[in-house]
Computed example of a mutant assay.
Amino acid sequence: MTIKEIVTEVKAKYPEINNVYFVGCGASQSDLYTAKYFLVRNAKRLRTDLITANEFNFDPPSDLGEKSIVITCSLGGTTPETVAASKMAREKGAPVICLTNAPESPLAQNADYPIIHGFHESYSAKMQKLTKCLQLAAEILEQYEGYEDYEDMMKGVEKIYGVIDAAIPYAKPLAEKFARENKDERVIYVMGSGPSQQVAYTFSSFILMEMQWVDSASFSAGEFFHGPFELVEKGKPFMLLMNDGNTRPMDVRALEFLNRFDAKVTVVDAKDYGLGNEIPASVKDYFNPILLDGVLRVYGEAIAEARKHPLTQRRYMWKLNY
């Protein structure tokens, strides 16, 4: 079934929906953030939240039920907490839509509607999860409330993979420069704003901390001046993700401050990769994190190579029961 067909069927069975819950763990939870951000800023009636899976399991929303849509996500479809969340949501009477790369996985088997996305085929395929989730959110909004920029959103969905693929050759030398300059750093801070804030969290938490064992923290460019900016000093490494959209002034302000005190700044800017040339202006904001996350995959590979520390290397994951 297409995403449009899935939502059409859900609406036929559940004509009155009050809330949409996005549920996952780790990077998969982060991948749901853009869709949640979109709904918060565009829905006039639908309520929405993004909840980590075990919090959803142990402390579920009181209104979870037949007037909820629950969207769960796990790349391999085996994350125990997310599978349990899907089961519990269905038991409460909510329709469950999942996103996964594995059609035969436990997550797919415990959802009413699995959406299968690519991952391994290309850099743009790695962004199918984010893109399909955003498309799903837009479809839910269109069918339950109406969405005036729906056609523009569908054009963006069509074009974003080509934007990512075109960006990769330009990103590689910049990623290699970042890796050379930061391979021996003990801490790297990552900052973003608006819809891309969670991409900063993803790179910090999962590429740097999980996959590279590099101390890191992430924060919103808007919150930077309410605490974290006290850490800025000459030569301290920061990565700044810059949007081509509404929250760009926050990114520019942060960059000016970092440069003022001669921090070691790596800028990854959606404008450098022509996002606004391809994606309609009315929906451009929501495609920033998809483009930036796709580009950052190259940065992750580059620093792993420079540090001689494969992205698959772990201390605890896959080795211990915890």
Score class of each variant (00 low, 15 high):
Tyr147Asn: 04
Ile303Arg: 00
Lys126Ala: 13
Ser74Leu: 06
Pro310Tyr: 06
Val157Phe: 08
Ala304Asp: 05
Asp59Glu: 10
Lys319Ser: 14
Asp31Ala: 15
Tyr170Met: 14
Tyr14Glu: 07
Asn54Lys: 07
Glu148His: 11
Ile6Arg: 03
Ala111Tyr: 04
Lys11Ile: 10
Tyr286Cys: 02
Ala263Leu: 09
Asn18Asp: 15
Pro106Phe: 05
Ala85Thr: 07
Glu158Ser: 14
Ser282Gly: 12
Asn110Ser: 12
Pro103Gly: 11
Asn101Tyr: 11
Asp149Lys: 11
Cys98Lys: 02
Asn321Phe: 06
His120Tyr: 12
Glu151Val: 13
Ala27Leu: 06
Asn259Pro: 06
Met242Leu: 09
Met317Leu: 13
Asp272Leu: 08
Pro249Met: 12
Pro95His: 04
Thr52Pro: 04
Ala108Asn: 02
Val163Asn: 03
Arg45Glu: 14
Ala84Lys: 04
Met239Ile: 15
Tyr37Asn: 03
Lys67Leu: 07
Phe229Cys: 15
Trp318Gln: 12
Asp285Leu: 09
Glu278Tyr: 15
Ala94Met: 05
Gly162Met: 10
Ser216Glu: 13
Lys132Ala: 11
Leu296His: 00
Lys11Val: 13
Pro103Tyr: 02
Met153Arg: 00
Glu151Ile: 07
Ile168Ala: 06
Tyr144Met: 07
Lys129Ile: 09
Ala12Tyr: 08
Gly24Phe: 08
Thr52Cys: 07
Ile279Phe: 05
Thr78Ile: 09
Tyr113Trp: 10
Lys172Gly: 02
Ser124Trp: 01
Glu301Asp: 12
Ala281Val: 15
Pro95Gly: 01
Val96Met: 03
Asn57Val: 11
Ser205Gly: 13
Ile279Val: 13
Glu185Pro: 01
Tyr273Asn: 01
Trp213Met: 15
Phe219Val: 09
Leu292Gln: 02
Ile3Val: 15
Arg41Trp: 09
Phe119Ile: 04
Pro106Cys: 10
Phe119Lys: 05
Glu104Pro: 01
Glu210Leu: 11
Ile140His: 02
Arg297Trp: 08
Ser193His: 06
Phe257Lys: 05
Glu91Thr: 03
Lys234Cys: 14
Tyr14Asn: 14
Met242Asp: 05
Arg47His: 14
Ala302Met: 13
Asp63Ala: 10
Glu16Arg: 13
Asn321Arg: 02
Pro195Ser: 15
Met239Ser: 06
Ile188Asn: 00
Gly276Leu: 09
Gly192His: 02
Asp31Phe: 05
Tyr144Asn: 03
Thr82Lys: 04
Gln143Asn: 08
Arg45Phe: 14
Leu296Ala: 09
Gly227Phe: 13
Ile71Ala: 03
Val214Ala: 02
Ile116His: 04
Tyr113Ala: 12
